[in-house]
Nucleic acid binder design. Structure first.
Lengths: 232, 232
DNA sequence: TTCGATCTGGAACTTTTGTTGGATTTATAT
DNA sequence: ATATAAATCCAACAAAAGTTCCAGATCGAA
């Protein structure tokens, strides 16, 4: 099977020569569901490009609690930081489903970048983008309550076209908790609050957005807007 | 006054030609204490290199609470992300003391980087480093209690040579609170806890590390180690 | 269809963090 | 020295988040 490297944003703008150089040093790997792709603090695993399946990027604390930094779908690159500086991986990566990935080692990446300035540029842009994302998440953790973070998650996962969107990608409360950096019970409680406030509605077994402006207000202000209650 | 550009880590390894190119497009600016250097979300202010004085990088939330991302001393670069992608500044920067900075605009930086691959490489490394720092801070906010974050702050600010180190850079509790992402009173309380546990000691008006291992344990485990109390 | 595993709902409780307010102490400038 | 501002200490309270526990619901595989 052939991969169209030029269609991967990370490699956009590269000429045929550069793409070939990239390709020859890349390794294709398959992981079964649940497999550890690489571990935090292990020696640099190189740049990964997810071709198929879903990947979880996460960290674990001393007590075993999990923080999901991202859930990736194709086509996405990950582990850019270690790939670029050759240091240990800054987080863990596991295959949620069976996955297929192309792997480019630190040294090969340096090789390609030294001759292909387009690649250098793309890498810089990717790193800058990551930086912005991390700064935003840092502020979310610093300033936002859990209901507010939950509202933000719903707003982001929900397409902007449809007025009503399902539970973020069918995530379980456990998975949402790991994304928000909290526990399952707390997510459940926050979800109930949002439903009581009329921002979310349950339909069948999915949860839907009932009041996008309300959710947005919550994401902005950290306060659940007053609900008009039915009389005592 | 002349600045030795080659001694700035960010520009290390550049040849005389590149340094001259860099220099000719750079602007020197002076800010009085308290001055806003640039604001979050404003149009890209370019790459700043702090030559003299102290700078605070921070964000503010809706309620006006402050989060200090870093306190910089010479010679440090800041606003790399916006400088590189040309987007809005991701945070605010103010002069804590009177400062002197060199400013390189987005377009000038692109110019220099396109002809000087050493500069490109340095930028990539700087961005990767920032990424690692943000990931670590994100985990601190996600997983660590405030006493634990405080312990970490003391351990980092304190030189490793001296067994006993003063209050982090003579910071006020208010300033520490902004760094840890909390409020002054909470920092005061945490400080008292660490003193009761015998990890810190007050001497004169400074606070000193009394038990480095204990502090380290707290930073690692999130739990204040049991203190042997003097009998009732 | 049934059994076991996974996911959800929700109450009760603890701990941590945030808030308020007042009493001291310490710096700084006149 | 003394007035003024800044920083700290401390207690009491409020709110948010984390924990424990258990009962139902739902899903999948046998």
């Amino acid at each position: 099977m052939h991969i169209d490297w030029a269609s991967i944003p990370y490699f956009a703008g590269m000429d045929a020569y550069g793409l070939r150089a990239l390709e020859t040093g890349a390794i294709r790997r398959i992981f079964p569901p649940g497999a550890l792709i690489f571990a935090e603090d292990d020696a640099c695993a190189g740049l990964h490009v997810l071709i198929d399946g879903m990947v979880r990027i996460y960290r674990v604390n001393a007590e075993g609690r999990l923080h999901t930094l991202s859930l990736l779908r194709p086509i996405s690159a990950f582990n850019e930081v270690a790939a670029v500086d050759g240091g240990p991986n800054p987080f863990n990566a596991t295959a949620v489903t069976a996955i297929e990935a192309m792997i480019i080692s630190h040294s090969h990446l340096l090789d390609v970048m030294s001759s292909e300035s387009v690649m250098l540029n793309n890498t810089i842009q990717a790193l800058a983008r990551l930086n912005r994302e991390y700064i935003e998440r840092l502020e979310d953790m610093t300033f936002r309550t859990i209901p507010s973070r939950l509202a933000k998650l719903f707003l982001h996962q929900a397409g902007y076209a449809d007025q009503i969107a399902e539970t973020p990608s069918q995530l379980t409360q456990e998975e949402i908790a790991a994304i928000l950096g909290t526990t399952r019970e707390v997510v459940g409680r926050a979800m109930r609050q949002l439903m009581n406030a009329g921002l979310l509605k349950k339909r069948g077994r999915g949860v839907f957005i009932a009041d996008r402006e309300g959710l947005q207000a919550l994401a902005d202000t950290n306060c659940i807007p007053e609900k008009v209650k039915s009389s005592p």
